[in-house]
């Protein structure tokens, strides 16, 4: 099965997630979520706050358990986290007590690579994200954008076949964000990994993705899946100038906006 080109790489089937809130009430965070990602596909997940998009990503990562339903990767059921599914979390979850190079070397270190071997791997991925000269710095000495690139290098060093990214550029200024989007595009075009990318930015989702999953809230569920049939390889300025880009952006925007207004009434 795994060898087939159109077999899903990630398959999410009828996933429900309920949380027990502090007031003993049940919160339905996700309701009957199903979708599949083919190998090498870039999928973004957008939606209003509280729609469970991060929760969905954590379930695929194996960090949270689904209340019902299953997640399978290459026909194997996900029961816990694995370095095979690389994760970049929101706010700079790299380790402040490790130097940059030892942060990037973390994954290889955990699987028992020798000091020399893991340093070599770490150097390679630090170069990939353009931070080779900051190897011996501590994270606190770096800017937010640099920290997030280190988080990406840390994930790359595990050589995962899937990237799960939870608003990786959310806390960055607009300019840094655009530079990193461009870098991610180049990286994806080179390696063609399967990507699930949670974001607040519709612009970012359309720019990067093959498909955009639009989620609705209360309960969190998939509202629609929008195919992004823009040409590849993509250059950010060119893509943003295309008329289809505006059309897709407006379509998704309207979809989320209707949802948000409904919720407020």
């Amino acid at each position: 099965m795994t060898g087939q080109a159109d077999a899903p790489h990630i398959s999410v089937d009828h996933v429900n997630k309920r949380f027990q809130t502090a007031s003993r009430a049940q919160l339905q965070a996700l309701k009957d979520v199903s979708f599949a990602a083919t190998r090498g596909e870039f999928i973004s997940i957008v939606g209003p706050s509280g729609c469970g998009k991060s929760t969905l990503l954590y379930i695929v990562a194996g960090l949270l358990d689904a209340s019902d339903g299953t997640v399978t990767v290459d026909d194997e059921r996900v029961t816990g986290p694995s370095p095979e599914r690389g994760v970049v979390l929101q706010n700079f979850s790299i380790f402040p007590w490790r130097r940059v190079i030892d942060n990037v070397a973390y994954g290889p270190e955990m699987r028992g690579a020798s000091r020399q071997e893991r340093r070599r791997i770490a150097r390679q991925y630090l170069e990939t994200v353009g931070l080779g000269e900051f190897a011996e710095y501590f994270p606190r000495e770096l800017s937010g954008g640099m920290k997030q690139r280190i988080a990406i290098a840390q994930m790359l060093a595990c050589n995962p076949s899937i990237f799960l990214m939870d608003e990786p550029f959310g806390a960055l200024d607009a300019l840094t964000r655009e530079v990193l989007q461009e870098q991610l595009l180049r990286l994806w075009e080179r390696d063609r990994k399967t990507v699930l990318f949670v974001t607040h930015s519709i612009d970012e989702a359309v720019l990067l993705s093959d498909r955009v999953i639009v989620m609705a809230t209360r309960p969190g569920r998939i509202k629609e899946i929008v195919p992004i049939d823009l040409p590849r390889p993509r250059r950010a300025e060119e893509i943003r100038a295309l008329p289809q880009f505006g059309t897709l952006r407006r379509h998704i925007w309207a979809s989320i906006r209707a949802e948000t207004l409904e919720m407020m009434q």
Binding site: L63, S82, P83, V87, F95, M110, Q154
Partner: peptide, 23 residues
């Protein structure tokens, strides 16, 4: 999130203890 990050990089609970919780 530090613990989560470690677990997604392949750390087992003993490694999480020594490389995340302790430092």
């Amino acid at each position: 999130y530090f613990i989560w990050n470690a677990r997604t990089k392949g750390a087992n609970s003993r490694q999480v203890m020594w490389t995340v919780v302790f430092p």
